[in-house]
């Protein structure tokens, strides 16, 4: 039966992908992108990767849809010309695909528990997580501690993206003054959000606290169930973006002002770094949490909790900053 699920979802996925590329309406492509993400997330779930599924849903269907729409609002909705260099593209793409498919003609085993990928490093984590840190979610254990350095890097990738968008959109466009004058009256209208629409407003206002609460749950329950700092950050950011959509940009900025976003961004990254450095000062290696408490297992748990908090802070700060940077662009 699983076979059938997989085949069906993959087929839908491919259909959606082709439709996304073929349509000339970018808006439709972005909406289909939401479906694409949800399908992808469901497939990940089928493949026993609930953590990844949660991330893909939060990022693909939530954050990236919002970002694409924000960018579309500032650019163009329709694609003008479909394709250029079609032949070159087909040649390159076919070569790549043949190369990839060529690899399958040799003893590649998927799902076989004796395949090399399942007998070397992977099982070690499953066997030893209980012993070293005693938390049920092995994915969180690897993410937070065994490969915590990767996660530090990941955090800084997000941080870089945040810095980058703020830097890029901090530039004043050249024909600034003229455009600003014509658009000022309209700007106050757009920043109102959906305040005058009863149903979205009612349901939305109801959902904002639920989303935030859920975000906190994902944040602090990440050691026991799917979730963790990154997913929580994305969900919390989505919640506040929802608020911004309902009540307008300005209202959202009053609740979570710019300086607070900056502080979240930098603070989360610093928190993560500090945990690493404290580990070093207490005599361990960089990012060694077992020295954080008398009992190394407790130390690991404290460390993972703290770094997940750092990740959550930075991610929510960055995503919100990016969203505001795009939304504020409307004024020009």
């Amino acid at each position: 039966m699983t076979v059938f699920f997989g085949v069906f979802l993959l087929t839908l996925l491919l259909i959606v992908a082709i439709a996304m590329v073929r349509t000339d309406n970018l808006f439709v492509a972005v909406m289909l992108g939401g479906i694409f993400s949800l399908l992808m997330a469901t497939i990940f779930f089928l493949l026993d990767a609930p953590d990844v599924a949660l991330t893909e849903a939060a990022v693909g269907a939530g954050v990236s849809t919002v970002l694409y729409l924000a960018a579309l609002a500032l650019t163009a909705e329709r694609e003008k010309i479909h394709t250029v260099h079609q032949i070159k593209a087909l040649v390159v793409v076919t070569t790549t695909a043949l190369l990839v498919i060529f690899a399958t003609f040799d003893n590649v085993q998927f799902g076989d528990p004796t395949a090399p990928v399942h007998v070397h490093v992977g099982p070690w984590y499953l066997e030893n997580t209980q012993r070293y840190m005693d938390i049920p979610n092995v994915v969180t254990a690897i993410l937070g501690s065994f490969r915590g350095y990767d996660t530090l890097g990941e955090l800084f990738v997000v941080f870089t993206a945040g810095i980058g968008v703020l830097f890029l959109l901090g530039a004043r466009p050249k024909k600034d003054t003229e455009a600003a004058e014509t658009l000022i009256p309209q700007q106050s209208e757009t920043s109102e959000g959906l305040r005058n629409y009863l149903i979205p407003r009612l349901t939305g206002r109801l959902l904002v606290p639920i989303i935030l609460l859920f975000g906190l749950y994902v944040q602090f329950h990440g050691e026991y169930s799917p979730g963790g700092g990154f997913q929580a950050g994305a969900i919390i950011a989505t919640g506040i973006i929802l608020y911004a959509l309902l009540e307008g940009e300005a209202a959202a900025l009053r609740v979570v002002p710019q300086w607070m976003l900056m502080a979240l961004m930098a603070g989360g990254a610093l928190l993560y770094g500090m945990v690493g450095i404290v580990g070093m000062l207490l005599g361990g290696q960089f990012l060694d949490y077992s020295v954080l408490a008398d009992n190394p297992v407790v130390g690991q748990q404290v460390g993972i909790l703290l770094i997940e908090l750092g990740v959550g802070m930075t991610v929510s700060g960055v995503l919100l900053s990016i969203f505001h940077a795009f939304a504020a662009r409307d004024k020009y």
Binding site: A57, T65, I211, V218, L245
Partner: peptide, 18 residues
Amino acid sequence: DLAMAYALINFVGVLAVL
């Protein structure tokens, strides 16, 4: 939990579209 997250996020997506 996961299903709940999808539901909440889906709502935000649609609202963003609107």
